[in-house]
Structure formats: C-alpha cells, structure tokens
Amino acid sequence: MGANAAHLKLASSSTAGPTVDLGDLLVRTGRGDESAFAAVYDALSSSVYGMARRVIRDPSRAEEVSQEVFIQVWKTAARFDAQRGSAKSWVLTMAHRRAVDAVRHDQAASNRDRKYTSSNGPDFNEVEESVTLSLEHEQVRRCLAGLTDLQREAVLLAYYQGYTYAEVAEALNVNPATIKTRIRDGIVRLRDCMGIEA
C-alpha cells in the first residue's frame, strides 16, 4: 500500500507538473529553438492527438492532422501572445479548428451528407457515453455532469463531433437560436464550474 502510494505520487509528478513554463517554451520555439519545440511537443502531443482522434475518428487522418498542427505551431510560434491566453489554449484552439476543418472537408469531398435528420441522427447517448468514459480529468467530467442534458448534448456535438450549431439544430430539429443559447449557457456554466476567470 505504502509502495503503491509512492508509485502513484511519482507517476503523477512526472506527468503533471512541467516546471518550465509552456509559454516560455513557445517563445523560445518562435526564435527557432528546436529543443524547446520538442518540449512543447512532448507536453501537448497527447492533448492534440486525443482531441483530433475524437473529432476525426480515423486514426491515420487524426495523426496527419496532428502533425500539421505541430508544424503550424513551429511556423507561427512567434505569433503566440501570452497576454491573450495560455500556450496550451493557443495550440489546442489551433488544433481544434484544423480537426474540424478536416472533418468538414473530408465529408464534403466524400459527398457524405452530414446533415442528419432527427430520425437517422447519431445516437447521442452513445456519443456522450464514449466521451465521458474516457475523460481523464475528473473536473471536466464533473462539470459536464452539471449541465442540463440539452446543454451538454449541444456542447458535445459541437466540440467533439465538429457540428456547426446549424447542423446541431437540424439534427435535433430545434430552432438554431435555441441551440446557440444552449451552447452559450453550457459553456458559461462549464467555465464557471472549472474556475476559469470570466
């Protein structure tokens, strides 16, 4: 038991706390420092790849998009501005946009209709469950649980499935304005629950 606890502590300290600030690493990356970039990669590759996998589904496509994201990070690191958000937020925002673009592009190219109707739409319970089950962060799980079902559904479909709010509205056969409101209320509630400064 004692050994077990020590082991856990060691494991968490090796994954949790980079003593070097990610923002500093990005600034150094912006000056062409490849070792700083490698450290940025090591700190964020799981977040970027996991998010891309969730949104894109296809593992090789997710990997391809993740690689593109990190190359974009390398190319544009000098634009990072710590006053406008954290380094992780900068990278993941970029990554999510790319992942969503990839999904929409691929679906448009394959002529597949993403505009599900409520009758043939995805099984939201399944979507929700698969997301919730793999959530590493207890806080996120708990905060998602604090949303109303309708808010959670709208936020999850938009973020993890790459749906536009108009597509969410169509899938659920609900007024788009209602979906916008649900997304907004959902994010505000999540933000407050996570203790993120408004």
Partner: peptide, 20 residues
C-alpha cells in the same frame, strides 16, 4: 469573453488526451 470560452474548450480537448 472569448479567451475564457477558449480556455474552457481547451479543457474539453485536454480531457480526451491520448498518447499518439
């Protein structure tokens, strides 16, 4: 306001991390 929303979305992305 966007900065706070993006930080929130970032937690959602982070929560499904997966080793590449």
């Amino acid at each position: 306001e966007l900065a706070g929303f993006q930080a929130t979305a970032t937690r959602l992305g982070d929560a499904v991390a997966l080793t590449p």
